[in-house]
Design a protein around this nucleic acid. Structure first.
Length: 817
RNA sequence: GCCGGGGUGGUGAAAUCGGUAAACACAGGGGACUUAAAAUCCCCCGCCCGAAAGGGCUUGCGGGUUCGAGUCCCGCCCCCGGCACCA
């Protein structure tokens, strides 16, 4: 009894021991020299967390464990694996939490980071804590500001007025995500729009390249799809509609519209301008100014998000102005309506109510003419329209184009418009320029000085970082500008170019800028005179595998791709895609629902780790479902992996030298084959199942194992349960750490080959027997054996045998009638 | 509405070049060992008929292709995630 206790598996002792040894030996940390000279480097990256006050949640641990398993596997294959971790601690999230708590973020963040680090060490991640980043550290954001300046100097950062969501009660600018149904998420006050000058990065210049490069990177399908949808390329035409004066003559001005259906231009019976369109004044008839302005005013009160909600009823006002339809020559009225967005296309449309659902609704509501210009296969040219017709067919009521099939009509009409000088083919993107200004406190100050003489001037690189000052009152106020704008002693400065009095930019930058380049920094944190070292970057980047949540499928991943392209174009990098492989992990849910405090189904990890150990917890998380799909967390489920690790421990510590049993050895080699195939594909749940099956065979009937039967299992289990694997590896008598060599087992195809196979025997597709035959049995032998099964004979008896289908190694099917 | 991903036992899930549906595990039941418990080992565990042998049915629903369909095709329903008046 006492002896058994001594040799029994005690997770906390083992885990404490190996975490201490890894730290003492520097198992997971690199020196600068290591990074400069690493052979076979593998950069294993995972999305860094926002260090909340609550600590790591199960979702974080799931994400990091899956990535860590991958890193450890690569290491056991002999790669030099760099696996860094850091903290994305700037941003509105932290700031709001600090406001709520009444604690300054500069005090809050360090304690959160400390707690996160403790937890991250406890779960046994292979992190290099000598190369960590904290985005709120001036030594880091110095280089975030440097990145901004690279774009500024290249003309890729520009300042322009743009609308923001403004909560008049909280007196603050809100992000779109903070506006729920047109109201402030915190106080429920209707949100308004304000126009403020902000900094934008010209990501739209890179839209086509961001789209094209998707063909060359190995990413989760869903993520690539999300990116291409977000970029939203569409092809069509830009058409010019001449504006008519009160006399009915052309004024020389024209309204530009973008359309994907230029072929329906003969059906354009009116025009619509967005309320913000710059030509509204110009086209509005004096007699209608009052209602038009009232409408525009009302529209501006509605926030940007609510505007985009589909209302049943459309609203709008006529301007009294007219255009000429360049295809038909007819005079058509110009309306204003908020269903047209200034954000997309040209902010104006030609309305074709016959063939656009929204235009149809609007025309019905305001009694505007509806003309059919496309007829479906069974429609007459003048068949009345009950709803917009969007299907295939031929053009009608379209002059010379009558009869043209819609499959060709877009190109044909575009060419005609081009010849006539009133249009041209045009590609349009949904993607907008990236607004990086935040009228907030908790972020890196944008490194710009505004000078009355010189305009916006870059802070000289030698003056970086522009340090965020400690401001006790960092709450945003009614002014709509950053709290930094209240600190004269900070923003008053002199122009670096002319020396006149000048003022610092008081906005801070978007958190996505912090996280847009962090992967470049990790390997170079030993350098404080450059953002990333050229030689080290050449050796380690781009990132080999990036793992993270699909909630960042669009913004973070798109922005970091963009910044990488820019830095390449500016000569700082020699690659333009940051992440060669990206895999999105799934979501952990509990009781069929996303974990949330309000549902009361949040799993707190610390007590589970205390009770079962990090190894069992890691293994269970990887076992509960396919990693890329997530799964349902059930508290009892951990018993499976926990019991498995115990049995593995007992088997290994009691294993003797000896010759492996051939049947067991076969199973072991089959398992090596399967696990080696599945682990790199992140099919962790099935790989673990295979190892369990293997151990069941090793232990079947309570037999004692020999070392050669279990040693491969110790190594294969190591990515999942690294502490226990190290301990067993040592007990098996190996010198040096398990992870310090290419110890992954190799299977022998011959030893993995089955000698006999089970064959299903069917009669007319129904299973009637299974037989066991030698793997190399001939077709005749198999069929003869199948036919002689008693139950098969009975079903064949007296019937015509029409066909016999033999799938080697699988089944025999007798088709009778 | 659009774009992804799904729908399989009491539960988490396996199996998709079409070939024995339910591997592995949780929960449950029975047994061995034990003074007892734990641990360990063995057996049962989709539904219906049957004493058994065996038979019938079963992968959200309805059709189809095929010797054979969870897997392929057509048409639906439902759930999860994202986008959404994008012209």
């Amino acid at each position: 009894m006492a002896n058994e206790d001594k040799d029994g598996y005690d997770p906390s002792t083992v885990e404490e021991k190996w975490q201490r040894l890894w730290e003492e030996r520097g198992t997971n940390t690199f020196t600068r020299e290591d990074l400069e000279s690493a052979e076979d480097p593998f950069y294993n990256l995972m999305m860094f967390p926002y260090p909340s006050a609550e600590g790591l949640h199960v979702g974080n641990i799931y994400a990091f464990t899956g990535a860590d398993v991958h890193g450890r596997y690569q290491r056991l294959r002999g790669k030099t694996v760099f696996e860094p971790m850091g903290f994305d601690a700037f941003g509105i999230h932290s700031e709001n939490f600090a406001l709520k708590q009444g604690t300054h973020p500069m005090d809050l963040i360090p304690s959160n980071v400390k707690n996160f680090k403790r937890q991250l060490k406890r779960i046994g991640g292979m992190f290099d804590w000598d190369h960590s980043v904290d985005t709120t550290d001036p030594a880091y954001y110095k280089w975030t500001q440097w990145v901004f300046l690279q774009l500024f100097n290249a003309g890729l950062a520009e300042r322009k007025e743009a609308p923001v969501n403004w909560c008049p009660s909280c007196m603050t600018v809100l992000a779109n995500e903070q506006v729920i149904g047109g109201e402030c998420e915190r106080c429920g006050t209707p949100v308004e729009q304000r126009r403020i000058a902000q900094w934008f990065f010209r990501i739209t210049d890179y839209a086509q390249r961001l789209l094209d490069n998707l063909d060359d990177i190995d990413w989760s399908q869903t993520t690539m799809k999300a990116q291409s949808n977000w970029i939203g390329r569409s092809t069509g035409a830009q058409l010019h509609f001449p504006v008519l004066g009160r006399d009915g003559e052309e004024t020389g001005a024209s309204i530009e519209v973008y359309t994907t259906r230029p072929d329906t231009v003969f059906g354009a019976t009116y025009m619509v301008l967005s309320p913000e369109h710059p030509m509204v004044d110009q086209v509005t008839d004096d007699g209608l100014r009052a209602p038009v302005y009232a409408y525009i005013d009302k529209a501006s009160k509605r926030d940007l998000v609510a505007r985009q909600k589909v209302d049943k009823t459309k609203s709008g006002v006529p301007t009294g102005g007219f255009c000429r339809n360049p295809a038909t020559g007819e005079r058509i009225p110009i309306w204003i309506a908020d269903y047209v967005l200034m954000d997309y296309g040209t902010g104006a449309i030609m309305a074709v109510p016959g063939h656009d659902t929204r235009d149809f609704e609007f025309a019905e509501q305001f009694d505007l003419p509806i003309v059919r210009v496309v007829a479906g296969p069974d429609d007459a040219a003048d068949a009345p329209l009950e709803e917009a017709y969007l299907g295939p067919g031929r053009l009608v009521n379209s002059g010379d184009f009558d009869g043209t099939d819609v499959s060709e009509s877009v190109d044909a009409v575009t060419a005609w418009a081009q010849d006539g000088g009133w249009g041209e083919a045009k590609v349009n993107f949904r993607l907008h320029d990236w607004c990086i200004s935040r009228q907030r406190y908790w972020g890196p100050p944008i490194p710009i000085i505004h000078c009355d003489v010189c305009g916006p001037v870059a802070v000289p690189e030698s003056d970086l970082p522009v340090v965020l000052p400690r401001v006790e009152d960092f709450k945003p106020d009614d002014s709509g500008v950053s709290p930094l704008a209240r600190v004269a002693s900070w923003y008053e400065t002199t122009c670096p170019e002319c020396g006149e009095d000048a003022r610092r930019e008081t906005d801070v930058s978007d958190t996505f800028l912090d996280s847009g380049w962090y992967f470049l920094r990790y390997p170079s944190t030993d350098f404080d005179d450059r953002p990333f070292d050229t030689e080290i970057t050449k050796r380690w980047l781009p990132v080999d595998t990036y793992i993270g949540g699909n909630e960042h499928a669009v913004l973070h991943l798109l922005y970091s791709r963009f910044l990488t392209m820019v830095l390449k174009d500016l000569g700082h990098l020699d690659f333009e895609e940051p992440y060669t492989v990206f895999r999105a992990h799934g979501l952990i849910i509990a009781d069929g629902a996303k974990m949330s405090k309000s549902k009361g189904n949040v799993i707190v990890p610390d007590p589970i780790i205390a009770e079962f150990g990090a190894d069992s917890f890691r293994m269970y998380l990887m076992f509960l479902g396919p990693y890329e799909e997530g799964g349902d967390y059930r508290p009892q489920g951990i018993q499976g992996p926990f019991g498995f690790l115990h049995r593995l421990w007992d088997t290994v510590v009691s294993a003797d030298d000896g010759t492996p049993d051939p049947d067991v050895e076969r199973k072991v080699h089959q398992t090596i084959r399967q696990v080696t195939e599945q682990v790199p594909q992140l099919s962790y749940n099935t790989a673990i199942a295979a190892m369990m099956e293997c151990l069941n065979v090793v232990r079947a009937g309570g037999r004692d194992a020999v070392r050669a039967e279990v040693e491969p299992l110790v190594v294969m289990v190591a990515p999942f349960a690294p502490h226990m694997a190290e301990e067993l590896w040592e007990r098996l008598g190996h010198e040096g750490g398990l992870f310090d060599g290419a110890h992954w087992p190799v299977y022998d195809e011959e030893k993995a080959t089955e000698l006999t196979v089970e064959i299903a025997v069917q009669v007319n597709g129904k299973l009637r027997a299974t037989i066991s035959v030698a793997a190399d049995a001939s077709e005749d032998q198999v069929i003869t054996a199948a036919r002689s099964e008693e139950n098969v004979e009975r079903h064949l008896d007296g019937k015509d045998e029409r066909r016999v289908i033999h799938v080697p190694g699988r089944l025999v099917n007798f088709v009778v009638g």
